[in-house]
């Protein structure tokens, strides 16, 4: 149970960074932390204590342990989510580089051409 709670704490740290920090790079880092918290949570869902790794091997087949495997589906899904996270981070970083070029700062309070 404690590990799920720690995931939640990690999620809240990311959310705090996104909501409070003013530096664009710190916001991007916060978003990544949020993503990782969810990925960790998703992987923990598929975890089975004392189970085999989810790869079919000759040892697995002969010992009939294939029933007692860690659920591989969340791992595959998390890999997909990581790929998506990579793409999002790349785009955010490139946008912030462009913004830095225009304004000369990473502070979002000084980048205010559009108002609410």
């Amino acid at each position: 149970m404690i590990e799920y709670f720690l995931c939640f704490v990690l999620f809240c740290i990311g959310l705090y960074a996104v909501a409070v920090k003013r530096n664009m790079i710190k916001i991007i880092i916060g978003l990544s932390i949020m993503g990782y918290a969810i990925n960790l949570f998703f992987t923990l869902i598929g975890y089975v204590h004392n189970a085999a790794y989810p790869i079919l091997s000759k040892v697995n087949i002969t010992q009939q342990t294939s029933l007692n495997m860690v659920d591989p589906l969340p791992q595959a899904l998390v890999l997909t989510a990581i790929v998506i996270g990579l793409a999002i981070t790349i785009i955010l970083v490139s946008i912030s580089i462009r913004l830095y070029e225009k304004y000369g700062t990473f502070d979002i309070t000084e980048i205010r051409k559009l108002k609410g």
Binding site: I55, P72, A76, L79
Partner: peptide
């Protein structure tokens, strides 16, 4: 192909 996501 025997692990998950070798390509990435």
């Amino acid at each position: 192909h025997i692990l998950s996501e070798g390509g990435f």
